[in-house]
Simulated assay, not measured.
Amino acid sequence: MALQLNIVSPEKELFNGEVSQVTLPGLLGQFTILPNHAPIVSSLKKGEIIYVAGNKECKLEINGGFVELSNGNVSVCVS
């Protein structure tokens, strides 16, 4: 089972695809979302988003933003 991850900034879409996990820099610390994770909404601080697409680990530096997870869809808006 996979997650559908969509990362957008005000300027453009940065990533849209299936991932097996995504790690995010939450305000209270780093956390990882895996398939079947409970729904969540969280603010994000400056740091790194790390996601695994296929066999490749990808990293993206952000200045902040927020994330919403619902029904296996992870939506991230970053600055």
Rank of each mutant, 00 (worst) to 15 (best):
L24R: 01
L24A: 06
P25F: 03
P25N: 09
P25E: 03
P25Y: 06
L27K: 12
L28Y: 09
L28H: 13
L28G: 03
G29H: 08
G29D: 10
G29N: 08
Q30T: 15
Q30F: 06
Q30N: 14
Q30P: 01
Q30A: 15
F31C: 05
F31H: 01
I33H: 00
I33A: 01
L34T: 08
L34W: 10
L34H: 13
L34D: 05
L34M: 15
P35G: 01
P35M: 02
N36A: 07
A38K: 09
A38G: 01
P39G: 12
I40C: 05
I40M: 10
I40Y: 00
V41I: 15
L44G: 09
K46T: 11
K46R: 12
K46W: 04
K46C: 04
K46I: 03
G47N: 07
G47Y: 09
E48G: 05
I49Y: 03
Y51L: 11
Y51K: 08
A53F: 08
N55M: 06
K56G: 01
E57G: 06
C58W: 04
C58P: 00
C58K: 12
K59I: 10
L60S: 00
L60T: 01
L60Y: 13
E61S: 14
E61Y: 11
I62M: 07
N63A: 13
N63E: 07
G65I: 05
V67M: 14
